[in-house]
Design a protein around this nucleic acid. Structure first.
Length: 450
RNA sequence: GGAAGCGUGGCAGAGUGGUUGAAUGCACCGGUCUUGAAAACCGGCGUUGGUUUACGCCAACCGUGAGUUCGAAUCUCACCGCUUCCGCCA
């Protein structure tokens, strides 16, 4: 049989080796056995599952696959006979003719089956993750549910400035020069402000490694397309990525978040029993082309092409992920509390969650100049959604491979944390008070620009 | 930039056209032995899918893709990745 027409029934496994077809996806067994329940839960996030189309494709697949495998089985057994006959020096031409007669039908079946599997996969690829039962049902941001508030927004007895006026006033934040060097949506920091930025990242890393049990990892900032597929940035969000084309090799992509390299640590791996949970923290720059966001947050450091982030990633056994999600979110909140920044935790509703997420909490920090809470961290539980595509597994009690659950959250976005400190800790003379927790990282400095 | 080599199961590593899904070792699981453990010995042990009430049976998978053949881990071609040596270099 020609390899060109060979069809592998285990298409989900093959998919991980095929660059063009990988996508986030649900367990197809769930669709086969429970499609009505799945459709019902997906409806809560505004996704209409076309059950009829799926059933049609599935039925055809089933009969065609059975037929094809029968033909393959006959071909295999006849070919073995040829081998035995020839081994004994007997005439095999009759059997060979019989195999030849199968050929056309077999190849036609294999071709059609291959097409069908691609159609099915394309269909499944458009289906988002199932929300957890306790995710609030809603259509948009407006339906998100505030879970808690911490801290009290300060009242100012002078007109509060925003971080741009404060930073530029100090002569330590310079968007004009950044624009000259690179273009819009980049920033340049100098002196104490640059140090404060660095101090924040160091502080966050230290808290997570020494108090929360994370292992610090240093990772590549350029990654291959397999990794981008692994965590779901590709194929859907290529427009948001910076892509590096190379002449003699496949392209590389600048990471939009450390989630990509860090979560991909376990791609195509089977983690040993007892090795879970894996808890990683990584400080990296993040690069986003933010296509489609023109006009949003054009002022200041809120939305940049390049920003730093300290990212928390956990790889856990399936039954641990709900608990791990709460813990990870608390780890991110701890940073805000140590920095004495008022924030709230919001549970994203079904309609506002990302494609891959089963449940997401956003942490929003108070920004006085905007008189509102702004996102500074997003903590998600992807359950097995990413792991299925990445083939990230662990060995269970029976020593059998089983998909892991993956989670991540910002702990925190460094640039936005800097913004929050500038705005919340400004004084009447436009100086900035350094939070006590950061002073050890600032050589004891208590105030910038006094 | 130049040259060479290599991609096989959880890992290491055999296998160059025919009952090979793949020797062997390690790891792992069960058992014997032991006060217990280790060692030794015995047995088991890939993944995914299809089918079956079930035992089971069947298909596919040896980097990816294409080709030769009745039949491919094995032969041919392309691509990708990795390693080593030389050059350059933070």
């Amino acid at each position: 049989m020609a390899k060109s027409s060979r069809i592998c029934a285990s298409w989900i496994v093959r998919r991980r080796k095929s660059k063009t077809l990988r996508t986030d996806m649900l367990d197809i067994q769930l669709l086969r056995t429970n499609i009505d329940a799945v459709a019902g839960r997906l409806a809560t996030r505004g996704f209409t599952l076309d059950s009829a189309t799926f059933q049609t494709l599935e039925n055809e697949r089933k009969t065609l696959q059975t037929q094809t495998q029968d033909l393959q089985a006959r071909r295999n057994s006849l070919s073995k006979q040829v081998g035995m006959l020839k081994g004994k020096g007997e005439d095999a031409s009759a059997v060979m003719a019989e195999v030849a007669a199968l050929k056309d039908e077999l190849e036609a079946n294999e071709k059609r089956l291959g097409e069908l599997l691609k159609e099915l996969e394309a269909f499944v690829a458009t289906i988002p993750n199932l929300p957890q039962e306790n995710v609030p049902v809603g259509k948009s941001e407006a339906d998100n549910v505030e879970i808690k508030r911490w801290g009290t927004p300060r009242t100012f007895d002078f007109p509060a400035k925003d971080h741009v006026d404060l930073g530029e006033g100090l002569g330590q934040l310079d968007f004009a020069t950044a624009a000259k060097i690179a273009g819009a949506r980049f920033s340049l920091m100098k002196g104490p402000l640059a140090r404060l930025h660095r101090a924040l990242a160091q502080f966050m890393l230290d808290v997570h490694t020494t108090e929360h049990g994370y292992t610090e990892v240093y990772v590549p900032y350029l990654v291959n397309s397999d990794s981008m597929y692994g965590t779901g940035q590709l194929p859907k969000f290529e427009a948001d990525l910076f892509k590096i084309l190379r002449e003699d090799a496949d392209p590389l992509y600048l990471i939009p978040t450390a989630e990509v390299p860090v979560t991909n640590i376990v791609r195509d791996e089977i983690v040993a029993q007892g090795a879970l949970p894996l808890k990683f923290v990584s400080h990296t720059p993040c690069f986003r082309s933010e296509a489609g966001s023109y006009g949003k947050d054009t002022r200041g450091m809120i939305r940049q092409h390049q920003f730093d982030k300290v990212e928390l990633v956990q790889i856990v056994a399936a039954e641990q992920s709900t608990e791990a999600h709460e813990a990870l979110t608390r780890h991110a909140e701890t940073i805000l509390e140590k920095l004495e920044l008022p924030y709230r935790r919001v549970a994203l509703c079904t309609g506002d969650m990302g494609f891959s997420s089963a449940k997401t909490y956003d942490l929003e920090v108070w920004l006085p100049a905007q008189n509102t809470y702004r996102e500074i961290s997003s903590c998600s539980n992807f359950e097995s959604f990413q792991a299925r595509r990445m083939q990230a597994r662990c060995r269970n009690e029976k020593n059998k491979p089983e998909l892991v659950h993956t989670l991540n959250g910002s702990g925190l976005a460094v640039g936005r944390t800097l913004v929050a400190i500038l705005e919340n800790n400004q004084n009447a003379d436009s100086s900035i008070t350094i939070p006590a927790a950061l002073r050890p990282y600032m050589g004891g400095v208590e105030k910038i620009g006094a």
